[in-house]
């Protein structure tokens, strides 16, 4: 599949009272047409800041994108999102790139009806007339599984439950036929049965509409049945990226191993002790000159304390940023 989004060496920092927060420290990845890429990381891993940087949603000040490129491909043409003006970015957001956030209530305007909010996006991005936008909106509400869409068109956000609001957000995200939908923890605030509904909806929409999805989450379980590829972030860097089966079956980064070990397993009768990663994630105020995971890593050796590992190929379609070769059980030589 051809690449649709390519991010190279993105660096984003926040200049705060307490010092410089090194939120994203050289993140590179690509997204292919129609695939689902899961970005997994804990709080402070830089997963959300990465996406906000690409969408031009970093508050500045205190935030600043220091360097990097984020190419959006359109056939043979490519445009760098990081170099676009605010007006161009507004055109892209909600147009070619749709997005869904964790908290639907704060993303919806409480004084406008749901229908108006979706229709507004259609009028602005696609230049539809009021009537066309209205009809299309009702189609969209139906598509995301909102019962009785004609009546619901005239309802306000507070008249919807959390799960229904998230469906509305998804309707807005897909309204203009985007090529990419970025979903930032879209199910974290929802109950498990509602979460299953939303995951199912995303899978169905992707099958019908064929867009690529970037799914940002802290939960490795949620994306295991959803993603084609998984990218694990730690300390503002990419730790590992691999096809979904490979990552869960043969994790190559000690952090991924730890994350998987920390999850209790529903599918086993024995209750083994959880593998816990000691310590806490790095303080992003301290600029690091070594592997950010070295403190918590049981495999760390001298080299891990001397330089920062870069993302290197490690098998078919996968890359890992680690000096230790977990497969062979010894330091990697390159």
């Amino acid at each position: 599949m051809p690449t649709i989004l390519e991010v190279n060496n993105l660096v984003t920092r926040f200049y705060t009272l307490d010092g410089v927060v090194h939120a994203v420290n050289g993140v590179s990845f690509h997204l292919e047409e129609g695939e689902t890429l899961a970005i997994v990381g804990e709080s402070g891993s830089g997963k959300s800041v990465t996406m906000m940087s690409i969408l031009g949603l970093i508050p500045s000040p205190p935030g600043k994108i220091e360097s990097g490129e984020a190419y959006l491909y359109d056939g043979y043409e490519r445009r760098d999102l990081l170099k676009m003006s605010d007006a161009e970015l507004r055109e892209i957001r909600g147009g070619q790139i749709g997005f869904v956030f964790q908290d639907p209530i704060s993303s919806l305007n409480p004084v406008l009806t749901i229908g108006e909010q979706i229709a507004e996006s259609l009028v602005r991005h696609l230049g539809l007339s009021r009537e066309e936008a209205r009809d299309r909106t009702i189609e969209l509400l139906d598509l995301v599984g909102i019962p009785d869409p004609k009546a619901r068109y005239r309802n306000y956000p507070h008249q919807f439950s959390g799960g229904m609001r998230q469906r509305v957000m998804i309707a807005i995200a897909i309204a203009c036929g985007p090529k990419i939908v970025i979903a930032d923890e879209p199910t974290t605030a929802l109950d498990v049965t509602i979460q299953a509904q939303i995951v199912e909806l995303f899978l169905r929409l992707q099958k019908e509409l064929g867009m690529a999805i970037i799914w940002i989450t802290h939960d490795l379980a949620v994306v295991s049945g959803l993603a084609d590829r998984v990218l694990v972030m730690y300390g503002g860097r990419v730790a590992e990226v691999a096809p979904v089966d490979d990552l869960y079956e043969q994790p190559r980064h000690p952090y991924t191993v730890g994350l998987l070990g920390a999850l209790p397993r529903l599918d086993s009768r024995e209750s083994r002790r959880l593998v816990s990663i000691q310590g806490a994630p790095p303080d992003l105020l301290i600029p690091l000159k070594h592997c950010p995971f070295a403190w918590r890593c049981e495999y760390a050796f001298d080299r891990c304390w001397e330089e920062i590992p870069t993302l290197q190929p490690a098998g078919l379609n996968r890359k890992v940023a680690c000096f230790y070769d977990l497969e062979r059980g010894k330091p990697r030589h390159d």
């Binding site: 310590g279 806490a280 994630p281 790095p282 303080d283 301290i286 070594h290 403190w295 918590r296 304390w305």
Partner: peptide, 10 residues
Amino acid sequence: VARETTADSL
């Protein structure tokens, strides 16, 4: 020196 400090926080 870094190895002596924990990553916990400041």
